[in-house]
Structures are given as C-alpha cells and as structure tokens.
C-alpha cells in the first residue's frame, strides 16, 4: 500500500478502495436495484409524453390527431408499452422498498422472494392492462 502526504505533511496510509461491482456474482436483487433506478429515469423522460398528450387534448382535435397518430404507430405503441411496464415495475419495486423500510423481508430467502414477486407482478399487471386495452378497443 502506498503512502500519501496529507495536507499538513503527515504521512497517511492510502485507504483501501472497495472492489468494483463487477467482482460480485450477479443476483436478482442487484439487477432489480438497477432496474428500479432505470425505470425511475425512464418515467422521468416519459413525463414528456404525458405532457404532449395533455397539451394536445387541451388544444384542439387537430393537435390531438397528431398525438394519436404517433401513439398509434408501431413505435408509439412500443414506447407506450415500455412506459406501462416501467410504471408498474417501478411501482412494485417501490412497494418492496416500503416493506424493507419497515424492516421486513430483509433476510436471505425473503429478500429474493419479494424481489422476484415484484418483478412478476409488474410484468403481469402490464400484460393484463394491455389485454384489457385490446379487448375494449
């Protein structure tokens, strides 16, 4: 370990750095932790879509037509599907955080269980909503 000089000129031992993330075996809880952050950021960007929708609706039928044509296109639907999933995935991930916040579900099998449960619940609710959407269309 190398020695470094601190401000006052005293010798300090360089502190050990924590190993990088890449040395750990991947677990579901790790992947889902990042997924929670990524879905949060995706929803952040997705608010632009929400604003477009509301402003178009508040403007006139022509403006709404432009939005409707975009959201009805293949790309629009893929984005909307992704938005739906991000929303539900993040919601169940958030509920899992609340369970952890009150100190429950933190032991070994439990934390993997509720993580898997929140993953499945997010996917299931997304698919359910889209099935309903296609049925009543």
């Amino acid at each position: 370990m190398t020695d470094v000089k601190a401000n006052g000129g005293t010798l300090l031992r360089a502190r050990p750095l924590s190993p990088h993330l890449s040395v750990y075996r991947w677990t579901l809880t790790m992947a889902m932790s990042i997924a929670h952050r990524l879905t949060g950021a995706a929803l952040y960007a997705g608010t632009l879509l929400l604003v477009w929708w509301l402003v178009a609706l508040a403007t006139d039928a022509g403006a709404y037509e432009t939005f409707a044509r975009f959201i009805g296109s293949i790309l629009g639907r893929v984005i909307l599907f992704g938005f739906t999933w991000a929303l539900f995935h993040h919601m169940f991930g958030g509920i899992r955080h609340f369970v952890w916040d009150v100190g429950r579900g933190l032991d070994h099998p439990a934390r993997e269980w509720i993580t898997a449960l929140s993953l499945v619940a997010g996917l299931a609710l997304t698919i359910l909503v889209w099935i309903i959407a296609f049925l009543i269309r």
Binding site: L57, A61, T84, L87, M91, G94, I95, I136, R137
Partner: peptide, 21 residues
C-alpha cells in the same frame, strides 16, 4: 403514487377507443 398511478392508468384505459370530445 401507488393509488394515484392505478387511478391514472384506469383513466387512460377508460379513454381507449373514445373520440376527442
């Protein structure tokens, strides 16, 4: 946001297939 998100999705689903007005 948990109940509000469900309400939000509910509102959007209730608009599917409806015209502008």
């Amino acid at each position: 946001l948990v109940p509000l998100t469900i309400a939000f999705v509910w509102i959007i689903v209730s608009m599917i297939g409806k015209d502008y007005n």
